[in-house]
Structures are given as structure tokens and as C-alpha cells.
Write a protein that binds this DNA or RNA. Structure first.
Length: 581
DNA sequence: GCTCCCAGCGCG
DNA sequence: AAAGCGCGCTGGGAGC
């Protein structure tokens, strides 16, 4: 540390169990307690794994009070009198999900009230990336110069250095002040509602990550082995057919060159391009290889994430996206293939999964936002909107709409909703729904769609005008903001303007539903996953029917509160695997 | 040996 | 002129 910079105060260091009484006594009755932990252990990816590592220090302080730092390796994880104190207070934490998950895993702490300064900073940043780590926040909001970072120092060593203790103290010393400033900023930006939502959500996410989702290792291993066999076979066949024993079928550049050498005209080796140039022999092999290798990788990756309890504890990031949706990682549980892989997500005897998802929720939200009466009326009448769209864009009565027509109109509804062009629709229909059409047909469909849904067209027109006028931000109905970079093109502004209120708005509804579900579920039931418009709950088989009702009611209630113009529908099934749905 | 970017692709 | 949106993960390939 440079001589001119004053050293941070040292905390009171606690290393015997009797100290816990002193700390508890000091903190009792504090409505807000600043908290931070330091951890050590094997590194997994970017962060540390609470199922493998350990907490070294727990540092706590009431506003303006003593800073206590507890050596949990010395005292043990049993928090004694401190536990109820921490469970009753609002805990101020930078990146609360991280600390609370560790404290749940190690100390069995159930925090219910939390104020996460990282969450606040991210809501304020609204998808700009100013850097939201604690140091950067202290600098931005309290003008405190940054200090040396000891977060990755050796927290396992027998004797901690003065610098380390000072660092631990500093991390909580300013949290109360930081939160005060952040709260003022949140209010000034009309973010109180979404701040309350995200704050209420955090303990729910901690519960979910802590619970994890059960998988069958053998099933996953079998899928991986079979997919790997298929991939090897396709690779071998491809090498033979091309007369190129060294070809790497996973290399786009090699595959492109090899196919071109065989006289196949290709712009790229993307699936869409390959399907358009299908030669009936080589290209199917490439596609089979792609599909199989992907499945094998995904299955193997899932196996690698199974913890000792036989469950996968993926991470869900509530503010991991620009719109307000969750992101999911380590592993990503939001892109699991819909086929056999989901069969591996299975309960034990006596347990059940309730798999619940919103029906066409983005379409309903868009209809509400745009005031698209034709769509709203159709939903109110209980109509099948995909069928209706098929009927109007194809100009045939609903009774004559085929399954293929309905597939087409799914692409139409979901694509055109966000501004897709006619050529884009051709591509999307082909790749996502296996529906082929000509460019001029797509143009006609597009025109018919916006002729029919004229309020949707007006909403797009308004968004287009705003985009051209250089609008810099967009909000969801709960007030969640997304700031549009000044460098964005008109097109990017337009898509942000139409996409965010819909995708972000439904995310807001889903998040509120998760909070309600968590509150209302019986003891034996746990939320184990969520995928944008879907939630998966594990429960005792005897409670499954009851849970199904609770979940359905909560989901409808939460979303309908945000989009009262349109009916909200939820489908919930009781299953033994995620594949049944 | 490491980091970075890209293509490609799984999901909603 | 042309343009669906939102993610995370993987391997290849380039560059250091």
C-alpha cells in the first residue's frame, strides 16, 4: 500500500465461539446488517464452488458500528446466537446471491430480507457496462478511491495478514452508505418497483440453486455414449466419402473447403446453408455429426456438473440479460435439448416434478402492449391464436388450417412480432419449423399479418419513429430500464424498443410468480429450475396436485397483474421426468 | 501454453 | 439496402 493512502481500519477479529455472543449482542435489533464473506478452495470457472470450498471470514457491521470479522475456520460453521439475528435483519451484501448461497450451504442460514448493492447497481446501469464490482461502485457512488484487491489472496493460510483483514473490513465498511446512495438513485429513476421485485427474488434464487435439480448419471452417460458413437460413425463415413482421412468434421472451414471441392456451392456451413444445398449424401453426414456431437457434449457436460448429492446446482443469474430475463450457467440449464436429454432430469420414488409453463406469453404480452384488439379478443374467446394467424395470412377458413399451416404461423407470429423481414421469415420458417416457402409468399404473409393485426403495425410504426428520433431508453411496465447505447443503429434501437417491453415484461411477471410460488409451496416442495416462461418444482407425490394448483394460481396471478388486458394461461403437468411435460 | 474471437447451435 | 429478440457453451483457428 502506498504511504499516502490511509489504511482502512482493522475489524475486531473473532476466533472463539464465545465471540459469537458478543457479535450477536452488538447486532441484535439492527434493522440492517452489512455482510461479506471471504472464501477459499478449488476454483471452478470464475468463482468458487460452495460444495467444494470453505468460508474463511464472515464480516459484519451495523450502520456506523463496530466491524466484526469472524474466522469461521476457527469457530466452525454453527453460527449459534448469530443465526437468528442475521435471519431477522435485512442483509446488505454486494453480490448477495453468492454470499447467501455459501452461508446456506455451510451454515444453514435462511436469509429472507436482502439488499444487494450489486443488484441495485445493475438495475441502475440498465444494460450499460460501467463495471459494477464493489470497488467500482464505491468509486462511482461514494467517490471512494479504489484499494488493493485481496479477494483472490490466500484465505486458507493459518495467519491472515493485516492487509487481508483490512480488506475484509473495507468490504463491509461502506456498504450502508453505498446502499443509501443507491436507494436514492433507484428512486430518482423510478426503479423502486423492480428493485423490490429483484430483492424479493434473491432468496428464492438462493433456494433454487441450493436445492439443485436431480439427474440420473447413468442415463446421461448412456446418452453421451450413444451420441458419441453416432458422431464417430458419421465422421468416419464423411471422411471416406470425401476421400479425406484427416478431415475434422467439427471444423467449419475444413468442411466448407471439402464440400466446395466436391462441387457444392456454399456460402457457409451453417445449418440453413447446408440444408439449402443438400446433396443427399455428404451434407446429411455433416448434419448428423453436428447433432450427435452436440448431444454428446451436452450430456457429458451435465455429468461433469453433478455434485455428491446427485444433483446439478446450476447458477441462475436474475440480471444476466439485457431485458431482465434470467441467464443460466455452469451448466446452462436453459438450453437442454428437448428430446431424450430431459428424461435424465428425473425424480426419485415418491417424488414428482410439476412442470408449468405460460401459454404463448410473449404474444399475449405484445398484444396487451400494442393494444392489438384482434389478438386480445381472440385470446378472450379462447381461440388458438396460431390457427387464427394461419387462417388470416393464408386466406383460408380455420377449419381448413392444417398442422403444417399452424407450424408456419408459429414462425409468423414469433418472427414478425419482433420486426422480421420477409427473407428472414423464409429462413426462420425453414430452420425452426421445417416449413419451406418462397420469398414472395413470405411477403404476402407479412402484409396479411400486419393488415390483420393493425395495432401491432401501429406499435411497430411508433417504435420505428422513436428509433429514428434517437430514443435512448426503454422500460417494462414494472419500470425496469434498458439504456440503448448511443452507438446503436436505428435498427438496433427499434428491436430493443419492441423486444424489451415484451421479453422483459414477461420476465418481470415470471419473477413475481417465482416469489409467490416460493412463499406458498408446502414444506416438502422446492423450485428446482426456471426457463423463461417455465418453472419446474419438485415435491412429494402426495403434494403434487396441491402444488400444481398453487403454481398455476401464482403464475396466472403474477402475470395477469402486469398484463390485465389479456387472459393469461398456464399449463402445468405432474411428471416424473422433465421430458414428460 | 494461453487468450481472444468466431461460427455454430441448443433453448425460450 | 437490409435487418426477429434474448442467452451460454464448444471447438477451431489466429495471434501472442
Amino acid at each position: 500500500m502506498s504511504p499516502g493512502v490511509p489504511k482502512s481500519p482493522l475489524p475486531i477479529f473473532c476466533s472463539i465461539r464465545a465471540d459469537l455472543d458478543r457479535v450477536a449482542a452488538d447486532l441484535t435489533g439492527a434493522s440492517r446488517i452489512a455482510l461479506d464473506i471471504e472464501t477459499y478452495g478449488p476454483r471452478k470457472g470464475d468463482g468458487l464452488d460452495p460444495w467444494k470450498g470453505d468460508i474463511r471470514l464472515l464480516t459484519l457491521s451495523r450502520h456506523g458500528g463496530t466491524i466484526w470479522t469472524i474466522d469461521l475456520r476457527a469457530t466452525g460453521y454453527e453460527l449459534g446466537p448469530l443465526k437468528p439475528v442475521l435471519e431477522q435483519a435485512t442483509l446488505i451484501i454486494h453480490n448477495a446471491k453468492f454470499d447467501l448461497l455459501w452461508l446456506r450451504v455451510k451454515c444453514g442460514l435462511f436469509a429472507t430480507k436482502v439488499a444487494c448493492t450489486l443488484t441495485a447497481a445493475r438495475l441502475l446501469a440498465a444494460d450499460t457496462k460501467p463495471g459494477n464490482n464493489l470497488d467500482q461502485c464505491l468509486e462511482r457512488y461514494l467517490q471512494i478511491p479504489s484499494a488493493a484487491d485481496h479477494s483472490r489472496s490466500d484465505w486458507a493460510s493459518m495467519l491472515l495478514t493485516e492487509d487481508q483483514l483490512a480488506y475484509a473490513a473495507r468490504d463491509v465498511a461502506h456498504l450502508h452508505d453505498l446502499l443509501c446512495v443507491l436507494e436514492g438513485e433507484l428512486e430518482m429513476n423510478d426503479l423502486q418497483q423492480v428493485w423490490a421485485l429483484e430483492s424479493g427474488l434473491l432468496p428464492v434464487v438462493v433456494n433454487m440453486e441450493h436445492t439443485g435439480i436431480r439427474v440420473e448419471r447413468e442415463k446421461l452417460a448412456a446418452i453421451a455414449a450413444e451420441a458419441d458413437r453416432l458422431a464417430q460413425q458419421a465422421a468416419a463415413d464423411l471422411r471416406t466419402a470425401l476421400g479425406n482421412p484427416a478431415l475434422n468434421p467439427a471444423s467449419p472451414s475444413q468442411v466448407l473447403a471439402a464440400l466446395r471441392a466436391k462441387g457444392i456451392k456454399l456460402e457457409s456451413t451453417a445449418e440453413e446453408a447446408l440444408k439449402a444445398a443438400d446433396d443427399g449424401t455428404l451434407i446429411p453426414l455433416v448434419l448428423i455429426h453436428r447433432e450427435a456431437i452436440k448431444r454428446a457434449q451436452q450430456a457429458e457436460a451435465l455429468v461433469g456438473h453433478i455434485k455428491a448429492d446427485g444433483r446439478i446446482h446450476g447458477r441462475f443469474e436474475p440480471l444476466g440479460t439485457a431485458t431482465g430475463r434470467f441467464s443460466s450457467k455452469e451448466p446452462n440449464l436453459q438450453n437442454i435439448g428437448r428430446g431424450e436429454l430431459r428424461e435424465a432430469f428425473a425424480v426419485q420414488d415418491g417424488r414428482r416434478l410439476v412442470v408449468a409453463d405460460y401459454s404463448q406469453v410473449e404474444l399475449r404480452a405484445a398484444a396487451a402492449i400494442a393494444g392489438e384488439t384482434r389478438m386480445i379478443d381472440a385470446y378472450k374467446a379462447g381461440a388458438d391464436l396460431h390457427k387464427l394467424t394461419a387462417s388470416v395470412v393464408l386466406g383460408k377458413p380455420e377449419t381448413e388450417v392444417t398442422k403444417g399451416d399452424r407450424q408456419l404461423s408459429k414462425a409468423v407470429n414469433f418472427g414478425l412480432l419482433y420486426g422480421q423481414s420477409a427473407p428472414g421469415l423464409v429462413r426462420y420458417a425453414a430452420t425452426s419449423y421445417g416449413v419451406s416457402m418462397k420469398g414472395d409468399q413470405a411477403t404476402e404473409i407479412r402484409q396479411a399479418f400486419f393488415r390483420t393485426y393493425s395495432r401491432l403495425r401501429q406499435w411497430h410504426g411508433l417504435s420505428h419513429n422513436q428509433a429514428q428520433a434517437g430514443v435512448t431508453e426503454v422500460q417494462t411496465r414494472t419500470g425496469r430500464r434498458r439504456l440503448i447505447p448511443t452507438t446503436a443503429s436505428d435498427w438496433e434501437r427499434f428491436t430493443a424498443l419492441v423486444n424489451t417491453p415484451v421479453q422483459g415484461g414477461t420476465a418481470d411477471g415470471m419473477k413475481q410468480a417465482l416469489i409467490l410460488i416460493d412463499q406458498r409451496l408446502p414444506q416438502s416442495a422446492r423450485i428446482v429450475s426456471t426457463v423463461h416462461d417455465e418453472v419446474v418444482v419438485e415435491c412429494h407425490e402426495d403434494a403434487a396436485e396441491q402444488c400444481r394448483g398453487i403454481i398455476t394460481t401464482a403464475m396466472v396471478e403474477a402475470m395477469a397483474a402486469l398484463f390485465p388486458e389479456v387472459p393469461v394461461e398456464v399449463e402445468a403437468n405432474i411428471c416424473t421426468t422433465w421430458a414428460e411435460k
